[in-house]
Design a protein around this nucleic acid. Structure first.
Length: 426
DNA sequence: TCTGGGGTCCTAGGACCC
DNA sequence: TCTGGGGTCCTAGGACCC
């Protein structure tokens, strides 16, 4: 039987911020989304104060003032770096792992020395010692159960001290535990499914696990059926140790302040296209089409609303930032309407295929393609060495209201030499 | 004043083909 | 007067995840 561990960092973004600033160790802190919009992470203290996940920060001013809550802009350079450090530590246990998100990884514990619980405790200790971040470990025979075990460990539902191995519990103990956990905690059950399940008197994990898979498939979907089977210990989801190439690549942002004119929208779209094209080349692919979209602010329904996108097929699949920008700006000119307060723009690359397997056009100009590839490579290398955006297309412009607000940003402690903390020993 | 961004999978329905 | 069935591909929309 498979033994799968899910390792999940506790309050990841908030923990990263606290790690480098001891003065806020015990303070309630929250990390905000782009443009300092809503709460995307909360420290334990902030959770205890009842700060809800996803709440707009401006609605929390009174609570924040009353309890001295510190809000920080999200510092993705820091989180990405800390994430890769955690992954390195986990890889010291086994190469058989799936990096599921910035703060979660699945590990196969099969064949490792020690009981699963012991290994779980070692993982916790090693990450704490080598990186400084707290993690919880959930262990079970399927991914869905491992996620649930992790939840149990986090909530400390059985005096577990951060590690929960379902395999070490008796079936009656598991039954009891599953009766306590609401079905909405199950991986794959979101708000809508939770509502529909409630109508059918399924509100606990135990009730979902004990429902008939065939009946669930009939009433819901094959997806939820798999969830039920996984809850019963039948693996339906594989550990994906090799990350599959993305099928689409998106780059979009809300604006710092509303934008009205085509010029600024064009800069934003060119900028997002540049970023998307970098990601495209990083996975060695070309795109067949680019979708450009713009929209006004749906949170202001009293203002005139506009939300439009355009798919622009490329004459031939490409990863050339210049060709992609041309296509995107052409699409933008087709959908742009004056008179609206635009709040967001984005691009989506689709029809991706590996460069190596690309359909050669009969009209292909090999020499020109070679020069393009060399130019893109040089640009990517310069930006990798000197920082994103050091060399970029003129179309992305300078400054502009559309750029995002990050007024509460912590320093890049680990990714800029001048910000690396100094430690003195005596 | 102020409400994130980037993905996946599945299903239904239409176009088209033989 | 009578007008099939099965398959593929594509797209849009809905659900989910972190």
């Amino acid at each position: 039987m498979a033994v799968i561990a899910l390792v999940d960092c506790n309050n990841f973004y908030a923990s990263c911020e606290k790690l480098f600033d001891p003065t806020i160790a015990d303070r309630p802190i929250v990390v905000l989304s782009n443009n300092d919009g809503c709460v995307v992470a909360r420290s334990a203290e902030a959770k205890a104060l009842g700060v809800p996940m996803g709440a707009p920060w401006f609605q929390l001013q009174e609570l924040a003032k009353a309890h001295d809550i510190l809000a920080l802009s999200s510092n993705y350079a820091l989180y990405a770096d800390m994430s890769s450090r955690v992954v390195h530590v986990l890889a010291s246990f086994t190469p058989d792992m799936e990096i599921y998100s910035i703060d979660e990884s699945f590990l196969s514990l099969e064949g490792l020395v020690g009981t699963p619980s012991e290994i779980g405790r070692q993982i916790r200790e090693r990450v704490a010692r080598w990186v400084g971040l707290p993690v919880c470990v959930g262990i079970a025979s399927t991914k869905t159960l491992a996620k649930l075990a992790n939840h149990a460990a986090k909530k400390d539902l059985a005096g577990l001290d951060g590690v929960c191995d379902f395999g070490a519990l008796s079936s009656s103990a598991l039954d009891e535990l599953f009766e306590q956990i609401p079905v909405s905690e199950v991986w794959g059950v979101g708000r809508r499914l939770d509502e529909r399940l409630a109508e059918m008197r399924i509100s606990t994990v135990r009730q979902l696990r004990d429902a008939s898979p065939a009946w669930i498939r009939e009433r819901f979907s094959v997806v939820l059926e798999r969830t039920v089977r996984e809850l019963r210990g039948v693996p339906c989801l594989d550990l994906e140790d090799i990350a599959p190439a993305k099928q689409q690549i998106m780059a979009s942002r809300s604006f710092g302040t509303p934008v009205f004119d085509l010029e600024q929208l064009s800069q934003a779209v060119a900028s997002h296209t540049t970023r998307a094209a970098e990601k495209l080349r990083a996975q060695q692919c070309v795109a067949g089409a680019i979708t450009v979209s713009i929209r006004s602010n749906p949170f202001k329904p009293w203002e005139r609303q506009y939300n439009q996108g355009a798919v622009v097929p490329l004459p031939e699949p490409s990863a050339d930032t210049r060709a992609l920008i041309n296509a995107a700006l052409w699409g933008l000119s087709k959908i742009y309407r004056p008179g609206y307060a635009y709040k967001k723009a984005g691009v989506l690359l689709s029809g991706l295929e590996p460069v190596a397997r690309r359909q050669e056009s009969l009209l292909a100009d090999r020499a020109r393609e070679g020069r393009t590839a060399a130019l893109m490579l040089a640009m990517d290398q310069i930006n990798s060495r000197w920082g994103r955006g050091s060399l970029r297309p003129l179309a992305t412009g300078f400054g502009g209201d559309w750029r995002m607000k990050r007024e509460r940003l912590s320093p890049a402690w680990t990714t800029q030499w001048e910000r690396v903390p100094l430690v003195q020993a005596r």
